[in-house]
């Protein structure tokens, strides 16, 4: 710690926020993941300060609104979302794919910042765009996976990056949690570990996110039953539908159909029929069976 924005972006700790995150950590531990900070060790300097140090060049709301009550850090929301993500995600990395993704994100977004107009002192002036950041992520996932294919470290790492609507929800929404006194790090890390793990196959990543999309649609449909929540329900359903279509298209583009070969061809054919009838069925099954999961997962996807 010690960068120009470290104090402003310090993680909030309240009894309710820490209790909430204790629950998140327990859940991720029970499912084989780890949503603690990658570098809690107070004895040394190591965490990733890139998004704090470059916070003023990130996209998202912050001082822009001039509304203190909406403004936990006074810095663009994209900085907070990415700082929490990079410092909480991908603990176990035997093939180095996560390390590669993190490296490429820093390189890509650093290049975008360097390409900004310069002020009188020659420093970058302004903010990179949402599309700069989204494109950096898509490229980082793709590049890291191609590198893992080239040397054989992880030939089945094919999970495509999440759809832009869910990413935007995270970028613009994550800091709101911090305004409420809840450190967004654990749930941000957990949601990426679960739903956007670059080491997943295209099929498994797609299946997870289709479940999520179905849950969002189910939750949205439930909200539609109440006139007061109907607009939010419609938006939630729209998010789920968009995510389902986008993620199916990108998973196919990343070779999902090619993964369905050999001995599982028959099973894949049946699944293909199901897919043709719509991802809604899968999501419906999940949301029917566990509506509480639907609500929880709906929140999770909004954090990345």
């Amino acid at each position: 710690m010690g960068g120009p924005n470290d104090a402003a972006m310090a993680e909030p700790h309240t009894w309710w926020g820490d209790t909430f995150n204790a629950g998140v950590n327990a859940l991720t531990a029970a499912t084989g993941y780890d949503s603690h900070r990658v570098t809690d060790n107070p004895a040394g300097p190591a965490d990733n300060p890139f998004y704090r140090d470059n916070a003023s060049h990130m996209p998202g709301w912050g001082n822009t609104f001039g509304l203190d009550f909406l403004d936990p850090h006074g810095l663009p929301s994209g900085a907070t979302a990415q700082d929490r993500a990079t410092n909480y995600v991908g603990q176990d990395d035997p093939t180095g794919v996560w390390a590669d993704v993190r490296r490429r994100l820093v390189d890509n977004e650093g290049a975008a910042i360097n390409a900004l107009p310069k002020d009188a002192a020659g420093n970058p002036d302004g903010n990179i765009s949402f599309l700069d950041v989204y494109g950096a992520h898509v490229d980082a996932y793709s590049g890291a996976q191609q590198a893992a294919h080239a040397d054989g470290r992880d030939p089945t790492a094919n999970n495509s990056f999440v759809d832009p609507a869910s990413f935007a929800l995270a970028m613009y929404g994550a800091p709101l949690m911090e305004h409420l006194g809840i450190n967004a790090g654990p749930i941000t890390g957990a949601s990426i570990d679960y739903f956007n793990d670059p080491t997943d196959s295209a099929t498994s990543g797609w299946a997870k996110r289709m479940g999520l999309a179905g849950a969002e649609m189910g939750a949205g449909a439930a909200m539609m039953l109440n006139p007061l929540t109907a607009p939010l329900g419609l938006a939630t359903m729209g998010l789920g539908a968009f995510g389902g279509v986008w993620n199916t298209a990108t998973a196919v583009g990343n070779g999902m159909l090619g993964e369905w070969g050999g001995a599982i061809a028959d099973g894949a054919s049946a699944a293909g029929g199901a897919i043709a009838s719509g991802a809604q069925a899968v999501g419906g099954a999940i949301s029917d069976g566990a509506s509480w999961v639907g609500d929880g997962l709906g929140n999770l996807t909004g954090l990345w």
Binding site: S201, T203, A207, I264, G267, A268, A270, A271, V282, A285
Partner: peptide
Amino acid sequence: ALIAIALLGLVGCM
């Protein structure tokens, strides 16, 4: 529900 289970099985096979 059966479709979801089949998909999970498919993922498991991979």
